[in-house]
Amino acid sequence: MVIIMIVVFWGQIIIQKRKLNKVRQDYFQQHGGLLLFDRMKSENGLAFTVFSEAELVQASDNFDNSRILGKGGHGTVYKGIIKNNMPVAIKRCVLVDERQKKEFGQEMLILSQINHKNIVKLLGCCLEVEVPILVYEFVPNGTLFELIHGKNQALQISFSTLLRIAHEAAEGLSFLHSYASPPIIHGDVKTSNVLLDDNYMAKVSDFGASILAPSDKEQFVTMVQGTCGYLDPEYMQTCQLTEKSDVYSFGVILLEILTGQLPLKLEGPEKQRSLSLIFLSAMKENNLDAVLVSYVKGQESMELLRGLADLAKICLDMCGDNRPSMKEVADELNRLRKLTTHPWVRLDVEMDAESLLRGESTSGYQIELSGYPMGESEDQPINPRSSYYAR
């Protein structure tokens, strides 16, 4: 009798294991795992790993709460340690619909091939679970949000360093818009999605709201998602996410650097809740000094601060067509940075929005640096073949 009970017990365990393996295989196929493996085999040198669930459970101490790095609308991120004691960021995504599950493998191929120093690198994923798990490089020094508003504010980072971080983030977004093929629209640009590495170099992160720019204009229509205070008003009205939506959100980042204020306040008079509205009102009244954070005014010339404010203003234009491209924003920040290191540079503070959009002497700044290199990006375009949503 005892032998029969043991046999039945082990038989049930074997059956349950087979069922579990079958479920894992089904999930793997649903998320495009076979396609992903085929492409990985055909593309030698693709630095991308498909992890098992067991590996990531072990790496994160079974997703222990003490390992949580952050939570957001698209998932929870844990610190993990994989083979060779390598730290990684493990993101457990929120539920996705059936269409997104089918496209997941293809999307992972695209994101895995993005290689830019100012974009967080996707190292791998796990597909044998109901909702795929992503594995990113670990970026240790928190976020730009924490540097301006939060726990790292006490570090008292110089304004020139904040300007460098903003420039690096703009370069990362410019790469997504201009060099990825097809272009990638981030969709949730904000200071908490700008991570900082050991040297406080910016790395744009969290592509949970991202889409790959489709060729069919109607495909742009999507449910409005993002973060209040950063959302493009045009996007909220039309539900059409474009590259210029990222530009608007980046304009809010520039405001945070200039003012030290949060993008949105939940209390106080209605007109005083939105940082964008407060700033634009101050600019209209020619009263920029009233919104600048005090330590910034003490560190830099008003000419430089006015230049950055003028750039933020045109990024926040209500009409997306009137905003500059992210490449133009990055180029302008590059020029403004030279003002912090070369004080003899002449600055023409008359802002010319039309010349910015035409790419002529962006925002009216005349840079007199004979033979000085303008720091063109050396990053090469990528060439994945897809037009699906990337998450």
Rank of each mutant, 00 (worst) to 15 (best):
Pro132Ile: 00
Gly72Glu: 10
Ile165Gln: 10
Ile119Arg: 09
Leu162Asn: 12
Lys121Glu: 08
Thr76Tyr: 04
Gly124Glu: 00
His167Glu: 15
Glu137Ile: 11
Ala180Ser: 15
Ser181Trp: 02
Lys83Ala: 14
Leu176Tyr: 07
Ile90Pro: 01
Ile157Trp: 06
Leu155His: 12
Gln106Val: 03
Ala166Gln: 13
Asn199Trp: 06
Thr191His: 05
His74Leu: 07
Pro182Lys: 00
Ser112Cys: 01
Glu146Tyr: 00
Glu171Asn: 15
Ser158Met: 08
Val88Arg: 04
Ala154Pro: 00
Leu173His: 13
Pro132Tyr: 02
Pro183Phe: 03
Gly72Cys: 07
Tyr200Leu: 10
Ser205Arg: 04
Lys102His: 09
Asn152Tyr: 11
Val139Cys: 06
Val194Pro: 14
Leu195Pro: 15
Gln106Leu: 04
Leu155Gly: 08
Phe159Pro: 09
Arg99Pro: 00
Pro182Trp: 01
Phe175Met: 08
Val88Thr: 05
Val88Tyr: 05
Leu127Phe: 07
Lys203Gly: 11
Val135Tyr: 14
Ile165His: 09
Cys93Met: 06
Asp198Pro: 02
Ser192Val: 12
Leu163Ile: 14
Ile119His: 13
Gln106Glu: 10
His74Pro: 09
Ala202Gln: 12
Asn84His: 11
Lys83Met: 11
Asn193His: 14
Leu147Asp: 05
Leu176Cys: 15
Cys125Arg: 10
Cys93Pro: 01
Arg92Pro: 01
Phe104Asp: 14
Gly105His: 10
Thr76Met: 09
Ile184Val: 14
Glu98Arg: 05
Ser205Ala: 15
Val189Ala: 08
